[in-house]
Write a protein that binds this DNA or RNA. Sequence first.
DNA 1: ACCGGTTTAATTATTATACCACTTTCATAT
DNA 2: ATATGAAAGTGGTATAATAATTAAACCGGT
Lengths: 245, 245
Amino acid sequence: MPSFKPIKQFRISDEVTEQLKQSILAGYFKTGDKLPSERDLAEQFQVSRIVIREALRALANAGFLVIRQGVAGGTYVTDLTFENLSNAFIDLFLVGKISIPELVQMRTFVEPEVARLAALRIDRKRAKHLKEALEAEESPIRTLVEDLDRKTAVHYILAEVCGNHFFEALERSLMALTRQVIHVVEPEPPFTLHPAGMHRPIVKAVLERNPDMAAEAMKNHAVEFGENLINMEKVFRERKFYSGF
Amino acid sequence: MPSFKPIKQFRISDEVTEQLKQSILAGYFKTGDKLPSERDLAEQFQVSRIVIREALRALANAGFLVIRQGVAGGTYVTDLTFENLSNAFIDLFLVGKISIPELVQMRTFVEPEVARLAALRIDRKRAKHLKEALEAEESPIRTLVEDLDRKTAVHYILAEVCGNHFFEALERSLMALTRQVIHVVEPEPPFTLHPAGMHRPIVKAVLERNPDMAAEAMKNHAVEFGENLINMEKVFRERKFYSGF
DNA sequence: ACCGGTTTAATTATTATACCACTTTCATAT
DNA sequence: ATATGAAAGTGGTATAATAATTAAACCGGT
């Protein structure tokens, strides 16, 4: 007996989504281009405006489009960033599919390699950025968010320098996830988690173009920070447990 | 004069999306639960059905909900899978933010570690699965898709066994991306890309609980397969170039 | 008791229309 | 010149109606 394929019913809006996405991927619409208005698209596709809206919202949520109101508004093609990837990781964390120790293990494994690759490829311009980011870490902080921004800056630069967009995407997700963890756990004194100067040996090794030393330094950092993070979360759980009951 | 705070305008549907998402994350709706119908939600939130629909569709696209038509249909909470993560990676590949060599480099780095961890944690039941998957690889193939399914099975099992959901999620994304690449490039004879038996040394080492040997075997495999993949893509580009102009 | 068809009812999917809200542009008045 | 404000085009929201889908209940013949 032939194995019949079930009749797959697509929703009209999914069909529209797919066509629009393919138009973008094929380069028919380029970054910055404005798509026709919802009313025009409805006429072209011969469907109702709502169907068009659902398709556009789907692509906007996927990071392909930005939608603006107003007379000069409309739907514009935008450059796909790594943000959606990070959000996918964060969702997995929020539903408990990824735990903090698992995140720490991944960081401990991946980040030394990022540092190693960065040490192999660092150039003068990026070296300057790296030094500046390190200096900035040690100036007085105002808010927790600002502190985190500065502490993550070094990681971002290394990820960019490492020369592999896949590693860069992953590193950004690791940073975003870590920030999410910190945000959920709400540390009382944020200073103990990541004291200033922790990055100094890493940056030093990278600037000296010493891959092994860079990897080693990053490994130490990842292990130490990971322990702090896990402890912090443990304290948080206990605090929550005792206060909650 | 008092300093008035600007009224931040969110889209109503985003507000609804957020509330529903939080309800799910807080465990108020659990996997398998049915949300109220669109009409009921519209009444509860005091907004129109369209707003509710956009919110539900957004959460469905993010993998939190499934929507079914019909009398026993409705909106059901579903377990978040790794699929959205893979799709995010695939989108980045499709827009050219991740290249094939970068993918190969990541695989060459990550997969040996997955194999190493798997060798440390394999148990009897999983060992059996692994052996069966290896046998299945060598039976005659029917379709390209079926062939790919069987070739990826070993990787999936190892990813599951490795005991870290983050690695598992990443490994699945690597598989999904690789399949996407193969799909785009459409190899004429798929056999040369990944001959049967390639996984045998890896499985052997894992079953012997030899982490270093498992990592080494996987590394060799990843390098070899990666070279094949890159070559295949090169051939594809040239073929396309000559036939296209 | 089984098995096929048919009806029913609950739900989403789609359409149509209208109006609201936002924001740039530009003419007008001061 | 500058400020004001109307105009116009865009997405955002609301409402109402109809279509399509589908599980389940029902029915009727064998």
